[in-house]
Structure formats: C-alpha cells, structure tokens
C-alpha cells in the first residue's frame, strides 16, 4: 500500500515538474503571448490592450503561473488562445484518434519484431532482415508514409488517403508508425537472443532434448525481453513524435497536429495540457514497465 502511495506521489511530482518546465520554457521563448495572438494581422496599441485584458496577461508571470496550477488542480485547463475553445475539449476529442493510431502501431510493431527476431535465425535470412530493419529505422517516417500512400492508396486505391474513417484508414498510418519501431525492437531482441543462446542454461536445455524452437521461445526469449521492456519509455516518445508527422501526411485528426500548431503559435494552455498528458502517460508506462520486469524475470520477484 505504501509503495503504491509513494508511486502516486512521485507521479504527481513528475507532472508538476513537467508543467512547470514547459511553462518556463514558453516564458523564455522570444516574443510575448500578445505577439502570437496578434499574428501577422493588424497591430495597434488599442488591439493589444484588448487582448491583454481579455486573457489577463497584465498580471505578473508568477501570478499567472499559480493561477494556472490552481485551476489545473480543479480540472480547468483553460482556453486555447488560438482556437478559442476549452483546452479539455480540444485535447479530449483528439486523444482517441491518436491513441488508436499509437496502440495499433505499438501492437503491430511489437508483433512484427517478435516474429522477425524469432524466425530470422538462419544467417542469410538474418542478413536480409537486418538490412531491411536498418533501412526502415533510418528512413524518415514522412517518406515511408508517402511511399506507402503513393503505392497502396494513389496507385491501387486499396486504402483511403485521409481521415479517421474506420479500420481501413488506420492501416497505412499504423504500418508507417510501426515499421521503425519494429526495426529497432527486432535488433534489440535478436541481440538479446544471441546472448541468451550463448549462456550455459541453453546448453542444459538442449541437453534435456528440447527442440530448438522451444529453447528459443521458452528460454532465450525471456532473457531477450528484458532490454526490450526497458525501451517502453522510448517507444512512447517515438509514437508521439511519429504521430505529429503521420497525422499531417495522412490528414488524420489527433494530438500530434494539435501539439504542432500549439507550439508553433505559442498557444500556452494547449501546450501545457499536452505536456502534462504526455508526462502522465510516461509515468503510467514506466510503472507498467517496472511491473513487466517482475512478470518476465522471476529473479526480480524474489528480491
């Protein structure tokens, strides 16, 4: 119980630090909030003073910050400077499309990695697969997306180009996002498998007369999974970063687009909400990773 409470406590501190850091970063960025609201339109002192009054920007930064924290603690994330709607609504309606994309990409990426790492054990298959992995890892997702679109959507019309219209529209974006993940994870898993197969317990297992596939799946894979689980946090970063580009290329709704616009236009309330949300997911994922270690490795359970 105490351990759980401590975890929640640390989680909250992480959230607070993330929000504060984002706030300070935006404060330190050149130009004022008024500048960004004015944009490239007409700019006179009268217009400026109206904007300042409307958003309460004449208060000291510390006061604005405390006010923000106070309201955030009560579930009020404020209104977007740019879109003029409540931030909770903007983020709320965009979370599910991004989550759908991220989850399907993650599942696809992990499955692909498992299958590839386990099946490409012969030297020549392995070399082919390894090269392909390197290629997809080093290709920008933008390019992968457009190439997939050009072939499967524009040329053969198998999948729709844009939007969030059912399962078919999810295929290409999810594959685009999953390929680099699969690439990295396969390399890590294969490396882990190689090392596990060199261990004495493998010799013992083989000596017991186990089939090679059983050795691989039941024994070596468990060891290989540990470093892969550590990459869970990294995975989240890739998914969020990739979503920005993929949502743009595929014309999909989602948090990536919202974040990009908000950062570009210094839309502070939206940026803060996205940062806090990301921090929250990060905390949850790391907790899951910690629990997964226990599941994968019995030695950790005992200690």
């Amino acid at each position: 119980m105490r351990a759980v409470l401590r975890r929640i406590g640390t989680g909250l501190v992480v959230l607070w630090v993330a929000a504060t850091a984002a706030y300070l970063a935006l404060l330190a960025a050149p130009g004022s909030t008024v500048d960004t609201i004015v944009g490239d339109g007409a700019d006179t002192p009268a217009i400026r003073s109206q904007i300042i009054t409307e958003w309460g920007l004449d208060r000291p930064a510390v006061l604005q910050y405390l006010d923000y924290l106070w309201r955030a603690a009560h579930g009020d994330l404020g209104r977007s400077y740019l879109l003029q709607r409540p931030v909770s609504a903007i983020v709320g309606e965009q979370v599910w499309p991004t989550l759908k994309l991220a989850l399907s990409a993650a599942v696809l990426g992990i499955l692909l990695a498992l299958v590839l790492a386990l099946t490409t054990r012969r030297p020549w298959v392995r070399r082919v697969s390894s090269t392909a992995e390197l290629v997809v890892v080093s290709t920008p997702p933008f390019l992968i997306g457009i190439v997939l679109l050009s072939i499967f959507s524009f040329r053969f019309g198998l999948f729709p180009v844009s939007g969030d219209h059912g399962a078919a529209a999810l295929v290409l974006p999810a594959v685009t996002l999953a390929l680099p993940i699969a690439g990295v994870l396969t390399q890590v898993l294969r490396d882990g498998l190689d090392r596990a197969l060199d261990e004495p317990f493998t010799v013992t297992a083989r000596a017991r007369g186990l089939r090679e596939s059983a050795v691989l799946v039941r024994h070596a894979l468990r060891h290989a999974l540990l470093p892969a689980v550590t990459l869970l946090g990294w995975l989240f970063g890739v998914l969020l970063g990739g979503a920005v580009i993929i949502e743009q290329v595929f014309g999909r709704p989602g948090l990536g687009q919202v974040t990009l616009t908000a950062v570009n236009s210094k839309d502070m309330p939206v940026v803060l909400a996205v940062v806090v949300l990301s921090a929250l997911v990060y905390v949850v994922l790391n907790t899951v990773a910690d629990l997964a270690y226990l599941l994968v490795d019995p030695r950790l359970r005992r200690s």
Binding site: I146, L149, S153, F154, G157, P160, V161, S162, G251
Partner: peptide, 18 residues
Amino acid sequence: YRFLKEPSVRVGALTSGQ
C-alpha cells in the same frame, strides 16, 4: 472539405479519385 496539408497528398488524393 478535407484538410490535407501535404501538397503531394492532396494531388495524390485527386488523381486517385478519392
């Protein structure tokens, strides 16, 4: 009206009749 920010994607969507 679909929002397609990438020019090449807009053109592709048109040439493929989407």
